[in-house]
């Protein structure tokens, strides 16, 4: 039994290798990009529009609305990053309904990559919004004594992001795989449905946490104390869900 799709290698040349994670990711990228291109090729600006356009509009406006609720004042600036996080994880989970498919998010490499992207993107957005001094200054607030704790918080939350997503997706795939071996009928379907739900929740949690981190970084700890208190709360809630 494979614990991660990384282990399924199709082609290798030195340290360069083409494993199932990368291949499925390319497949997802192809489907998402072509699907988007196909649907948005003929967008209607009239009062009537196609159901696919409606679906995409609902998804995009829903993401924007969620980001606004988190506290991002200009959500469209972060839509590309946060929206893609959500859509990638969600579509990766959704495709588990196809037999033989292994979600790339079930690989710790993928989740680590995504968490690292968040780790890099948060300071970038923060510096872009507040300047270098303003952003770095937020690490020594309220006192310089908090600097190590803030740094630890950055690292630990990144780690938590990666591990949480990996654990959930991997366990879902693992359970389905084990059940297929034990009871090949009915139960795997139920567990797949449960895995779909878990995947959607994880996509939501991952992107919302990233949004909260970005909101906290762009608006500063002092400027918006609500966010400083909201972030840990959201964090603890999502932890509860993921572990539950």
């Amino acid at each position: 039994m494979q614990l991660s799709p990384d282990e399924q290698v199709f082609w290798q040349y030195g340290f360069i290798k083409l494993n199932a994670t990368i291949v499925y990711t390319w497949g997802l990228m192809l489907v998402m990009a072509l699907g988007s291109r196909f649907i948005t090729r003929q967008l209607s600006t009239e009062h009537t529009r196609s159901r696919w356009q409606n679906l995409l509009e609902i998804i995009v406006t829903g993401i924007v609305k969620q980001m606004k609720e988190v506290g991002l004042s200009e959500p469209q600036r972060y839509l590309g990053f946060l929206g893609t996080l959500f859509l990638f994880i969600a579509v990766a989970s959704l495709f588990t309904i196809f037999p033989g498919y292994q979600p790339p998010t079930g690989s710790l490499s993928t989740t680590a990559a995504l968490a690292l992207c968040v780790l890099v993107a948060v300071p970038l957005f923060g510096i872009q919004e507040q300047g270098v001094a303003g952003y770095l200054g937020s690490y020594i607030k309220p006192t310089i004594l908090m600097l190590p704790f803030n740094l630890m918080s950055e690292v630990s939350r990144t780690l938590a992001l990666a591990i949480r997503l990996f654990g959930n997706m991997m366990s879902g795939a693992m359970i389905v795989g084990i059940l297929l071996a034990i009871t090949p009928f009915v139960f795997p379907v139920v567990m797949t449905l449960l895995g779909l739900l878990t995947g959607m929740v994880q996509a939501y949690i991952f992107s919302i946490l990233a949004a909260v981190y970005i909101a906290a970084a762009t608006q500063g700890h002092q400027a918006n104390p609500d966010l400083a208190t909201n972030a840990p709360k959201a964090h603890s809630q999502t932890n509860g869900i993921s572990h539950g």
Partner: peptide, 13 residues
């Protein structure tokens, strides 16, 4: 569990 090439590739992807 972590393959660093895959991590980089997935980040680029």
């Amino acid at each position: 569990l972590i393959d660093w090439f895959t991590v980089v590739a997935q980040a680029i992807n």
